[in-house]
Simulated assay, not measured.
Amino acid sequence: MSFRIVADSCCDRTQQMKDWTNITFVPLTLSIDDHTILDDESFDQEDFIRRTRESKNVGKSACPAPDAFAAAMDCDEDDIYVITITDKLSGTYNSALQGKMLYEEEHSGKNIHVFNSLATSGLESLVAEKITELGNSGADFNTIVETVEDYILNHTALFFNLESFDALNKNGRLYAMAATILKKLKLKLVCERTQEGSVKLSAQEFNSARAITKLASIVINEVKDNIQEQRVIISHVCCEEKANAVAQKLKDAGFGSVEVIRASGLNSLYAADGGLIISLTK
């Protein structure tokens, strides 16, 4: 059976995705002051971050409407796999479910499943790669759904280190008191996604250099076996040099595949200037 992947724009585009013809990205909308853009291939990370630096306001985001997902499902393929950002940080997952309902009200004959990635960024990319691997091997729809749901929950992880928590705080993703304390203490946090799709603290340091060293160490320790078979995606926000430094630490530790890419628009908004997001298989 033919298959298509529909992903929201929080899914960072890896090198191999550039050759895929069976993936559709549904963009979120980003805004800073009076500047509004779609989070698509035209997103200019440097320009957007420059605007956030110069503005007294914080950037905002809006999830795609259900009919945008329904339109993406109107394709020639028989099996459709939708991937979204965790429902703990965005309404996009619910919008995709509603889009599925809208599509199925007027169409039949397709298999459609919406995956809650329980994360964002490169972890969505890993999910897309896993679906493609299984689909190309000839696995059937139900097998792919069951395997990928288990893969998301038990065989992937995501960690991040941010230079600023302003966007998370002002968009209601962080308690105001916690954000104020962090800013005053100048703490650099290493956080991770939970199995419920929310965020928890893994470590803290008082400077950026120690924080990224700690981040690399935590990622390395997350993998118990077969580190050479694991894949890592490092998404960065205007800090490629820092991302490459972490990538080298992970390569030296034995990871078989480490790719550094620019974060998408939504991930750039919330990770902010200097942010790193590391997604990995385990």
Rank of each mutant, 00 (worst) to 15 (best):
I5M: 02
A7C: 06
D12L: 04
H35M: 03
T36R: 11
I37V: 07
E41D: 15
S42V: 08
E46M: 11
S55K: 02
S55E: 10
N57D: 11
V58Y: 12
G59K: 03
K60A: 10
A62Y: 08
P66T: 12
D78M: 10
T84L: 12
I85P: 01
I85F: 11
L89P: 02
G91A: 00
Y93W: 13
S95P: 08
A96W: 04
Q98D: 14
E105T: 01
H107Y: 04
S108W: 05
I112A: 03
V114D: 07
L118A: 06
A119K: 04
E124R: 07
A128P: 00
I131T: 06
L134R: 12
F141A: 00
N142M: 02
T143K: 02
E149P: 13
N154L: 08
L158N: 13
F160T: 07
F160M: 14
L162T: 09
N169E: 15
N169P: 07
G172H: 04
R173H: 01
K183S: 14
K184V: 04
L185T: 11
L187Q: 09
V190N: 09
C191S: 13
R193M: 15
T194A: 08
Q195P: 13
E196W: 06
G197A: 15
A203R: 05
I212S: 13
I227F: 03
I233Q: 00
A243T: 13
K249I: 06
L250I: 06
G256Q: 09
S257R: 14
Y270N: 11
Y270R: 00
A271K: 08
G275S: 02
S279F: 12
